[in-house]
Amino acid sequence: MRDFSYLRANSIDAARQAAALPGAMLLAGGTTLIDLAKCGVTEPETVVDITHLNGLDGITVDDRGATIGALARMSSVADHADIKSRFPAVSEALWQAASAQLRNMATIGGNLMQRTRCPYFRDPANFPACNKRTPGSGCSAIGGVTRGHAVLGTSEACIATYPGDLATALVAFDATVHLGDRQVAADDFFLLPGTTPDREHAIEPGEMITAISIPASAAAGRSTYLKVRDRQSYEFAAASAAVGIEFEADGRTIRDLRVALGGVATKPWRARAVEEALKGKVLEADTVKQASLLAIEAAVDHGANHYKIELAPRVIARAILKVGETA
């Protein structure tokens, strides 16, 4: 790991100013930043430690929704009683991510900014070609080993999967990312690779995530996060779904449905076609399975990741039936 200078921010403004300088990066839990610095992927000149800032780790939940400070740890949010009861998919996405130690370190702000696990991206010494790391250098994954790569939202420049679990739930429930005074819908915060895969987030140098907020909804209250992976725990998703459901008074007709996919797309992937197809329908296994296929209509595989196209709709259907049936 190349050396850097260390700055401890004592106010949000100081952190923003310091982070705006060339080569400077914010340091929160460090579980992405220090990891990637060790891989030689990020080489900060200065790290600006924001973990000693006070007042940015609050979690408040009321009838309007939840507001979570950028420095709240993944573990505190996952274990928060009101998050568990009013936003179960958010809690489940968090406790099924990483490990207990990592969740004690990792912050919500840093979590949104985590980078892809594309093995070529993480290995600059052996794979200099990576458009995400070095724009214009090519993509080592296309034509390489693609088992973990995305089938939705890819471009000719990059097929890297967005790996995070939390953001998948945030996108499903229309969360907002707060950058100080400016606010961005979670769905718009994450960018498609297109021709600029190096740009991943709608955030500018000198901006800092200060909080996220999630509006309360009946669907968020009756929700789940289903994560399918190569091993039972401590692994990124092969495919995952954040799903929430609200029924009409009859308890069977779907009034509101939220579906977002993780582990299969280049950004947290809201599956609106599935939602629209099922609203107004009675919850029933065959209907749900049929509608879930709409999520992968535009999917493109690169060989070894073909299984994700089969897996994703099954994960969606299982998640919808699971939240729908626990009456």
Binding site: G30, T31, I34, D49, Q101, M105
Partner: peptide
């Protein structure tokens, strides 16, 4: 009191 990974924590971050 919280379990964390020392390999991804900077020594400087642990001050205080």
């Amino acid at each position: 009191g919280q379990r964390v990974l020392a390999c991804l924590t900077l020594a400087a971050q642990a001050e205080g």
